[in-house]
Design a protein around this nucleic acid. Sequence first.
DNA 1: GTATAATAGTTTCATATGTAACTAATTGCA
DNA 2: TGCAATTAGTTACATATGAAACTATTATAC
Lengths: 147, 147
Amino acid sequence: MKNLRLATFLPYQLSVTTNKISDLIGRAYVDILSLSRAQWRVLAVLGEEAGLTSSQVAAKTAQDKVTVTRAVKGLIADGHVRRQASQSDGRVAHLNLTAKGRRAYDQVAPAALQYEKALLSALTQSERKQLTQILSKLDTAVAHMSS
Amino acid sequence: MKNLRLATFLPYQLSVTTNKISDLIGRAYVDILSLSRAQWRVLAVLGEEAGLTSSQVAAKTAQDKVTVTRAVKGLIADGHVRRQASQSDGRVAHLNLTAKGRRAYDQVAPAALQYEKALLSALTQSERKQLTQILSKLDTAVAHMSS
DNA sequence: GTATAATAGTTTCATATGTAACTAATTGCA
DNA sequence: TGCAATTAGTTACATATGAAACTATTATAC
């Protein structure tokens, strides 16, 4: 078996590059809006689709339900999100952006897309396709390995 | 400008897939050795190269110096690492694996490589090359964007 | 040569995180 | 119907994290 060298170890490379990108983009919502990454993700999915429940948000953002609970608590406290009890199921509540939340979303989403665009401009069209496909394959592989 | 959709947003995809992989591999050293990810990274670079200083470890593992301080403290406490003051520079200390640390490294490194191998087997040879190259390009791009 | 700046590393503080235990509501099924 | 098993969501706990302030040492400038 070949030796382990961190610098060429795929999971490490992925982690380092991903964290750099996350940190960079994180500034957009941390600096501008004082939102945590978890909160920004909640905002983002609610901006796409209104009325999601906490569990749905957790699934869509790939975050722990505890993380979502806390993020939502903060977002409600500062008026970005409104919670509305479900009529049909007493356990769940639907979450929606307030006008303030919508403004925050409309302010940060373009900045995020701008970052993505800048990153993607470093890649050829073919590389972009490849990357998406590779990530999808890795995702499938890791899912199999976890079970 | 197109709309933001989290599911197809590259930084998000990268983050989700990377975290899944990190969590999976993390089990190898968390479960087997009760090491944190930060500690494992320190162990890994010291396993490759002996006598590194804390700063060098921080640079090589892409971790904050505070994180390294704490990881090293733990590793010294449970006997995986030994610290040795530098003769030439009173500020720094050189870090080395103890015999126990070496054994831990020798035990976990193959497991980590095994995981990497399994992941890479989901990709074609060409995709593996592409991925490394793409990550490197993204890394360069994000470095430029940060400054 | 001495004062200033820079570097290595640690500690403090405030916050973020995941696991597990918990409450409340709903579903499944006998 | 009625009770066990699920599910949604929260709380409690232990631990992890980064920013900033701090100490000690070395390098730089004059």
